[in-house]
């Protein structure tokens, strides 16, 4: 039985950088059933109303990862997003290309930076060259070992996380959520022999620029939870190397603040993260804030029952131990 159709207004981003001075939005109206995916509607527009509409797609089944775009400002797969709920929630349906990548034409973006960042983490098993495996030898993992990275193989490299990420938007040094989630997958793979090297390298190649905003985890259509995997990577990096970077020093310093007082010690933490030289560089800003908020430089009194916190540290803060 066919569902009741709705008359859906769809605003589609149109831009051909070789011809157009600026992007525009074309408005189409379609009679569709509410559960119709946005991709189906776009293909229908292309087939019946405007053959010049340009988009990427392939499988139509949320497997190939080709049709990621912005739907009502959120990065999603067009094949997996039904029209009805979007119109219900927003009163409109606006379809735009992914963010953080240059538009080639209409809904198609240049994905080269996304793929470059992926290649940079060397996303393949590195085995020990001195002990090459004979051809055809299996190299099995236990179910518990596989379980450590059961989320990441679900990734279909659609780049929805890359499009949603404010660190990618603001700093080209950040490799993006997908590359880091994939790196995690190789770091915890028991067959990989480059784990330590991978952890050392990534510390200076953007790991500590993740904001933990979780926008990637919201955007991911496959529940890879990249932000959680990046947190896991950070914990492994600290366990491997300690506080070699500002990011790791900040996390370790924060942990020490709580051990000593139970609370954050604002100035002390800045010094631990930045070092004295860094602190000197922030002097002007520090003074500006201090004039309004003199408590910034005061050490807070220790919490009551601090000894309890110290005991938790003794019991659980063994830096040599694994995390999951």
């Amino acid at each position: 039985m066919a569902a009741k159709t709705i008359s859906a207004p769809i605003e589609v981003y149109r831009y051909d950088p070789s011809r157009d001075r600026a992007p525009r939005y074309d408005r189409f109206t379609l009679e569709v059933e509410p559960h119709t995916p946005v991709l189906t509607a776009l293909l229908s527009i292309r087939n019946q109303q405007d053959p010049s509409l340009t988009l990427r797609y392939s499988c139509r089944s949320a497997i190939c990862g080709s049709c990621a775009m912005q739907i009502n400002s959120k990065s999603r797969l067009a094949c997996q997003t039904p029209i009805g709920p979007e119109i219900e929630r927003h009163g409109r349906l606006v379809v735009e290309p992914m963010r953080n990548q240059a538009v080639l034409r209409d809904l198609v973006v240049d994905q080269s930076s996304f793929w470059q960042n992926y290649r940079k983490i060397e996303p393949y098993l590195k085995l020990d060259p001195r002990q090459p495996m004979p051809e055809g030898t299996p190299n099995p993992m236990t179910p518990a070992e596989v379980d450590r990275f059961h989320e990441t193989p679900r990734c279909i490299a659609c780049a929805a996380c890359y499009s949603a990420c404010p660190a990618v938007e603001s700093d080209p040094a950040f490799p993006g959520p997908m590359a880091l989630a994939k790196l995690y997958r190789f770091v915890v793979d028991p067959r990989d022999r480059a784990t330590q090297d991978r952890l050392v390298r990534i510390q200076t190649e953007g790991l500590w620029l993740c904001l933990r905003c979780h926008l990637c985890t919201e955007a991911c259509p496959k529940d890879v939870q990249p932000s959680e995997r990046i947190r896991d990577l950070k914990e492994l990096a600290i366990a491997a190397q300690g506080g070699t970077e500002r990011g790791s020093r900040h996390a370790i310093g924060f942990k020490e603040n709580i051990r000593e007082r139970g609370l954050l010690q604002e100035m002390k933490l800045v010094r631990q993260t930045d070092g004295l030289a860094g602190l000197a560089g922030q002097l002007g800003q520090g003074l500006r804030i201090w004039r309004k908020k003199p408590e910034t430089t005061k050490r807070p009194p220790a919490i009551e029952d601090l000894a309890q916190v110290e005991t938790l540290y003794r019991e659980l803060d063994d830096p040599t131990e694994g995390h999951r």
């Binding site: 914990e235 609370l263 954050l264």
Partner: peptide
Amino acid sequence: SFSCCGSGFVDEAN
């Protein structure tokens, strides 16, 4: 006796 929540940093260390 409440302590700091860890602020999204301490969990990165442990």
